[in-house]
Write a protein that binds this DNA or RNA. Structure first.
Lengths: 340, 340
DNA sequence: TATTAGCACTCAGTAATACCGAGTGCTAAC
DNA sequence: GTTAGCACTCGGTATTACTGAGTGCTAATA
């Protein structure tokens, strides 16, 4: 059977109607809803075909139809194909100049959640692709050193290290010089055994200290846990199909734990620029089998990026969501460009 | 009417039973449950008295009794009075030495949530009481300076400042010296106009820069938003009395927003060492009117402390919760002592 | 051949009803 | 002061009937 023009129109009408109401839609509704001027009986025949083709589902014998995952997929693909779905620009209520990364991200998550009425999540840019731009070791106390690492993209990380003896000014200068000479411009992955060995040799008496320092730097950069912020998680209560305690609970757990969701967001083509949509069972993680998840990527600079995700019911307003995400991506891109 | 020994015993029995089951408890249950050897009829008479006195409530004519807020309050006060409710020590699964403040806190919140089966929340220690221990300004780029502020308690804050021109080594040394001379040992509140004016005078050509720096330091320290971490928020679904979407939603919103809850935790006697219990309507905030909230204080050092809160149903296992909190407080205290 | 009107049928949701049982208050007896 | 007994209350559940939205199919129509 072929999916001709008319069937497409009817399918789209069914989906759009269902997106609005969340109720199964019947033939009579479609007959009035569209400008096809067809009777409900004709629509019924077509719907019967569409069901056979797997695009729609009848929850029970005497009910209307709802879109299947396959139906949503077709709909979303059509949406994504016609690129001109521009939305009115949403303004982030943040003045980026003095704000810090984390508050920008929190704000962005909130804006998304409020705008779409779904739950949102945003991850901080991943660090392990960053190169080290600048290192600094400072004596704070007689028994503690402060290490500051600045990465490209101006991400600052710091740590305190305990030492047994106070170090002289000259030693500090020497260590600082050495750290910068050896490590500047390197990626975490590039700090391998041979670099570390060279540094330890150079450090002489302080080779143990250097080991400690490298250790701390490594763990602080590695920090496998991606920082992530969520917002609007209670929005899920707005959708009756998610609003039962079992579903809500697993979903909220996932939003609280974050780990699984960040994995999902980062999973495909790491440097992907596009927008990814997971509809229901398409999602590889259990917690969102009853939802749809839309993810997008924002860029801070070359090779450094974070992800934004929206989690809502299957009957998500994909058009709006995709528009909003496109928008926010640009907004964030420009904020970070300016900031640089 | 007097609250004699027997009435107390019966009240306690009612409360304990209700804590376990969550169902109204009847006279027959109590008659068997206690070792008073009284018939259900006698218990009924006593219950009738207890109701008149306001300690218990009958949800409807033909139901058993449940504790009123006043009843809980009496029970909790009795609990708190006998100090010897020590719990087995709960071990935090964290090796504090290389861990950073935020992961310790997150872990603590999680431990609490898992141990108690309620939702938990923990705030980072408040900064504005901190004295500045050490300041450092570093040129990172030709056009950006890094400021690092270390506060007593070894809390590190940093920020990048944009500058128009590269500064000479000597200038940097001078500025650093000056910042430390003027600001070391000061509280944020003590950095007043007169100190700032003196510094600007001293700074000469760089007075504008100094203003900028002070500004950034101030806003970064001030950061009115207290950092807070929650855990186990989905535990609330375990209690039928909270498990309806309206209640769950407001509660989860509060846990997500955090602001209101941190206010609650910090509200009474700021330096209070004790444990505070808000039962139902006793709570000043709307979101927790159907819950009980127990808060405690942990200390990092002199005058610097954070809060831990547990949010659960009215029929919370107060004994366990108070024990767990006492325990965690000590655990945290010792971790931070050691760390110092 | 495609469309439509008409009709019998299905089935979730809701309202009405009856029933059960846990629990009470009260009275009279111990 | 305590207890046994009994009538009464009332939330919860199961049963039943009813309603209405929606379908599939058939026969008539353009």
């Amino acid at each position: 059977m072929e999916l001709d023009e008319r069937k497409m129109t009817i399918l789209r009408a069914i989906i759009q109607n269902y997106l609005e109401t969340g109720e199964p839609v019947g033939s009579r509704t479609i007959s009035k809803y569209t400008d096809l001027n067809l009777s409900s009986a004709t629509i019924r025949n077509e719907m019967s075909d569409l069901e056979e083709m797997g695009y729609i589902i009848q929850p029970h014998t005497s009910a209307g139809r709802i879109p299947s995952d396959k139906g949503y997929r077709l709909y979303v693909d059509m949406l994504m194909a016609d690129k001109q779905n521009e939305m009115e620009s949403l303004k982030l209520q943040l003045n980026a100049k003095s704000e810090r990364l984390d508050s920008i991200l929190k704000e962005a998550a909130k804006v998304i959640a409020v705008n779409t009425n779904y739950a949102s999540m945003i991850t901080a840019p991943r660090y392990h692709r960053h190169r080290i731009k600048f290192l600094q070791l400072t004596q704070v106390d007689p028994d503690s050193l402060l290490t500051v690492v600045i990465l490209e993209g101006n991400i600052v990380k710091n740590n305190l290290i305990h030492v047994d003896e106070e170090l002289s000014k000259e030693t500090m200068l020497k260590l600082n010089l050495m750290l910068n000479t050896f490590l500047q411009g390197l990626d975490l992955a590039e700090i391998n055994a041979s670099v570390m060995q060279k540094m330890r040799n150079e450090a002489g008496v302080y080779s143990a200290l250097i080991s400690d320092i490298l250790d701390v730097i490594a763990t602080s950069l590695e920090s496998e846990e991606v920082e992530a912020y969520t917002s609007g998680s209670t929005n899920i209560f707005k959708y009756p199909e998610l609003n039962d305690s079992a579903k809500a609970s697993t979903l909220l757990s996932a939003l609280e734990e974050k780990k699984e969701l960040t994995d999902l967001m980062y999973q495909e083509g790491d440097s992907d620029r596009g927008i990814q949509v997971y509809i229901g069972d398409e999602s590889p993680i259990e917690a969102t089998k009853d939802c749809s998840v839309v993810t997008a990527t924002y860029h801070i600079e070359e090779g450094v990026y974070g992800k934004i995700g929206i989690i809502g019911p299957r009957r998500m307003d994909y058009e709006k969501v995709v528009g909003t995400l496109r928008n926010l991506m640009e907004e964030l891109d420009s904020i970070f460009r300016k900031d640089k």
